[in-house]
């Protein structure tokens, strides 16, 4: 019998890199009075993301660039920023899809800048906590003698898209009400309020509706819809907000 040989083909050569200008907003609010842009020439391939390009700069050209990231796969919600003026996840945006020789990266709007591209999430996390983002009920699946709480596919369908939220804050950064109302609860938290209220296992609807039915709560949404336009996870906060209003106006129970 002829001996079988496994041939490991040589890796095909990596195509030569092209270059793009990465314009990064640099700003340390503790030391400077206004942001400034610094340009870097960065090589890229067709798979290079904006985050890869920023990390290239950080490794090779300017170690001081402030950027936050973790998963590099659109799961942790850390790397939201304005890319060519539009809020997006840097790890989920490829250089080639931007179709531009200059890529400008800036911190997200409506968040306080910590340094360069890093913003503070305190307000978003506190509004998220405020709407009680967990199942509220007396009994538990782990109480002996109780059964798993079952749901039909239709019941899951009602809230499943909202549970994809990774708390990246892109929706809050484009919300016009967030820009002027420092007490507004925001699309991220409102979408999560809907996510739990629409969950048939949850019994906290009354509590949550009371929390969002405030002078800086759900009624301050003007339905601009930008939140849903920028969400990288396909969540539709604007729709969640309208559905929540249905509960408060008595159209839904």
């Amino acid at each position: 019998m002829a001996a079988q040989s496994t041939q490991i083909s040589k890796p095909t050569s990596i195509p030569a890199s092209k270059y793009v200008t990465l314009r990064i907003s640099k700003f340390n609010p503790k030391k400077e009075s206004s942001p400034k842009f610094i340009d870097f020439k960065v090589p890229y391939q067709k798979w290079t993301t904006v985050l890869d390009a920023i990390l290239h700069v950080k490794q090779n050209l300017d170690h001081s660039i402030g950027v936050r990231y973790s998963c590099r796969q659109a799961s942790c919600g850390s790397c939201g920023m304005k890319i060519n003026g539009r809020p997006a996840l840097a790890c989920f945006t490829k250089i080639i899809e931007l179709n531009s020789d200059v890529i400008t990266v800036e911190p997200m709007n409506n968040f306080p800048i910590i340094r360069d591209l890093v913003v503070g999430f305190e307000r978003m996390f506190s509004t998220h906590k405020k709407i009680k983002p967990y199942i509220i009920r007396e009994d538990s699946e782990i109480t002996p003698g109780t059964k798993e709480f079952l749901q039909t596919p239709e019941e899951v369908e009602k809230y499943i898209q909202f549970s994809n939220c990774i708390k990246c804050g892109l929706c809050n950064s484009v919300c016009p009400t967030m820009a002027t109302d420092s007490s507004f609860v925001g699309p991220q938290a409102l979408a999560q309020a809907y996510r739990y209220i629409a969950d048939t296992r949850d019994k906290g609807k009354k509590d949550r509706l009371k929390i969002i039915d405030d002078s800086h709560g759900i009624w301050r949404c003007h339905f601009a819809g930008s939140c849903s336009q920028v969400c990288p996870k396909g969540v539709d906060p604007a729709m969640g907000i309208q559905l929540l209003r249905g509960y408060l106006l008595g159209f839904r129970s």
């Binding site: 002027t180 109302d181 420092s182 507004f184 002078s215 800086h216 009624w219 301050r220």
Partner: peptide
């Protein structure tokens, strides 16, 4: 009232 409380916040102002 809605326009004004969206522009500026604070208990006494509101």
């Amino acid at each position: 009232r809605v326009i004004l409380i969206e522009l500026k916040q604070g208990r006494s102002f509101e």
